[in-house]
Design a protein around this nucleic acid. Structure first.
Length: 583
RNA sequence: GCUGGUGUAGCACAGUCGGUAGUGCAGCUGAUUCGUAAUCAGCAGGUCGCGUGUUCGAGUCACGUCACCAGCUCCA
């Protein structure tokens, strides 16, 4: 038997422990508020939760009292006893206890299911288990109720909203404290906070979900796009740009009107209905159709940094991660059927190159045909198999996300991990047989006949806005040298070195570096602190000594004082760092 | 959109029982010319998110509304 059987290294044990803690929470709630109805209470990655239906909502102030009651339950050393009941008796028991949600759960269990309960003291709950054997196994000083919010019964937004209490627990007090400390640290790198502090972007009441980019944010964004263009050129893409507003007939033809109109902004122009694009593909179709194509031209890789608008629900908005207008680094690739696999792999290679440039890890999900879709099942299955084979051939793993594809085709989604371990969907590769059909796209084959091309929709960064949010958190605002909005700050120690500082700055500026000077009459410590807080990669300190010797004193944001060197030495070093786009 | 919470100066916050606003940082002015994460002093800065109501009197109470935060639902 493994040594770690009863530690959190064993996920099953961790989940069992946390599940038992959620039962203790439910018991505490029932003791303090007997009229509350129980829903469900599982273990989750960070802890556990329990959903309740309460007449009076559970508020943050109530959590303290609940925690106190939970501690009491731990100390009461109540054994957890499992028992099973036949279906009818199980329903009867829950009806007697007036637990309608539990009754519904039992009714939905398959005919032959074993219906088990766990009893601890006066509290009995429908539960598959397993559980710890006694409430005293849960450390009374190593759990915490973290928040309470609403959650739909069975995750269905058309059903009742219940009250969810979240909590977390560990085997030791120190582990709980370390966890809470980690959460605090993660908050410090929240891109909304850093975006404000570093002057990157702003969100205003006048435009909820419509971000403003400030000068430093624009520098970051433009530098990022410069890199993006360089990579895409290398991978054989051409760049186009299509309009933001197009008439409604187009959106009917593409299927967006039928499948996406709730998220679309519309307007009238000269009495005619138009819509603001929520996706770039129809524009790309029109460009393809502009002239006849030969098989010799394919694949055509048309990239577009397209600004799209989507009416997201107000509650879904979240900094730059979830906005109502964003720029997709889109591309539409038109190709023959036998080019599909190579082309998908070509896209995956590009993804690998780009993500590794930022040191980002990803997970792939394959999303298959949704209920709301266009096209034939056979096409969908073929497309799904092609996507699957393309990545498994490359030795990559994926998770299946059944029924989550786009309405026009299946997709591979690339989820990048942020600082708190949340994952954000950024890249996606979507294989589409439907749009070319709807728009009657054609190419002339070697046989002189007309054929229908297939197409890929793909984004790497996903949305420029979201990607900037992700890397802001990933780097905690300390962007690598090539990306940093301000790369260098030159600061004289006294007014006597001011001219020398300005000369150094001018030389660096002439070499194309983003450099600022701080010639204010402040102590050097004060200037350094400010540059440090602004996460500027290099600080160049010059005083009488440097001016006399013609050198500079270099300080790095992470390593402190690096001593003096000549400007040439320094320039050689940072030029290399910039041109290789080093991490 | 839903549930709960929050909204006071550019930023981070305080404001008791209802009696028309404070602190720190940033800003401005002056002094200081200083060697690697905050020099000192002075000054200025607010329709307390917005609207309506209750009250002799509202930052404080009520209702409405907008935005934000946590989560649910949805998603790049």
């Amino acid at each position: 038997m493994a040594d770690n059987q009863y530690t959190f290294e064993n996920k099953e044990f961790k989940d069992t422990y946390r599940h038992t803690t959620s039962h203790i929470l439910a018991q505490a709630v029932k003791r303090l508020y007997p009229d509350v109805k129980l829903a469900i209470g599982p273990a989750i990655d960070d802890g556990f939760y329990y959903d309740f239906d309460a007449e009076k909502p559970i508020t943050p102030e109530m959590l303290e009292a609940l925690e106190a009651e939970m501690k009491k339950i731990c100390k009461e050393k109540l054994p957890l006893e499992r028992f099973e009941l036949p279906r009818e008796e199980a329903i009867k028991l829950m009806q007697e206890k007036d637990e309608p949600y539990k009754v519904e759960l039992i009714q939905d269990l398959p005919e032959d299911a074993v219906i088990s309960f766990y009893k601890q003291g006066e509290f009995t709950d429908l539960c598959a288990g397993p559980h710890l054997d006694n409430t005293s196994r849960v450390k009374a000083n190593a759990f915490k109720l973290t928040s309470c919010t609403g959650a739909y019964w069975r995750g269905d937004s058309s059903r009742k909203m219940l009250q969810r209490v979240y909590g977390t627990c560990f085997q030791k007090k120190e582990e709980l404290e370390a966890y809470l400390q980690r959460i605090e640290e993660a908050k410090k790198r929240d891109h909304r906070k850093l975006g404000k502090e570093l002057g990157l972007f702003a969100l205003m009441e006048e435009g909820p979900g419509f971000p403003f980019f400030l000068p430093k944010g624009m520098t970051l964004r433009n530098t990022l796009l410069e890199y993006w263009r360089e990579v895409h050129k290398r991978y054989g893409y051409v760049e186009i740009s299509t309009p933001i507003i197009l008439n409604q007939d187009l959106w009917h033809r593409s299927g967006h009107w039928d499948h996406y109109k709730d998220n679309m902004y519309t307007t009238l122009i000269d009495e005619e209905p138009f819509a603001v694009k929520p996706m770039n593909c129809p524009g790309g179709m029109l460009v393809y159709k502009l002239e006849p194509h030969s098989y010799k031209e394919l694949p055509i890789r048309a990239a577009e940094l397209g600004l799209v608008h989507r009416h997201e629900l107000s509650g879904a908005l979240h900094g730059l991660f979830r906005v109502r207008c964003f720029t997709q680094d889109d591309s539409h690739i038109f190709m023959t059927r036998d080019q599909m696999k190579d082309e998908i792999q070509n896209v995956v290679k590009l993804f690998d190159e780009v993500y590794s440039k930022f040191g980002l890890q990803y997970k792939i999900e394959l999303s298959t045909m949704p209920e709301d879709h266009i096209g034939e099942l056979a096409d969908w299955e073929f497309a799904q198999d092609t996507l699957k084979n393309a990545i498994t051939d490359m030795g990559k793993e994926y998770e299946l996300n059944e029924g989550d594809g786009a309405f026009y085709g299946p997709k591979l989604d690339f989820h990048l991990q942020d600082s708190i371990g949340r994952t954000w969907q950024c890249g996606t590769i979507q294989l589409d047989f439907q749009m070319p059909e709807r728009f009657e796209l054609e190419y002339i084959g070697a046989d002189g006949e007309k054929h229908r091309p297939v197409m890929i929709h793909r984004v790497v960064l996903g949305s420029i806005e979201r990607f900037i949010g992700v890397i802001t958190e990933h780097f905690a605002g300390a962007f690598p040298f090539w990306l940093a909005p301000v790369q260098l700050k030159v600061m004289p120690i006294t007014d006597r070195s001011r001219e020398y500082a300005e000369k150094i700055a001018a030389e660096l500026d002439a070499k194309g570096f983003r450099v600022e000077t701080d010639v204010r009459n402040e102590k050097i410590g004060y200037k350094i602190r400010e540059a440090q807080v602004q996460k500027i990669p290099y600080m160049i300190v010059v005083g009488d000594k440097e001016a006399e010797a013609g050198t500079i004193a270099v300080r790095t944001r992470e390593g402190g004082d690096q001593g003096t060197m000549t400007l040439d030495e320094f320039v050689a070093k940072i030029t290399e760092q910039r041109d290789t786009r080093a991490l």
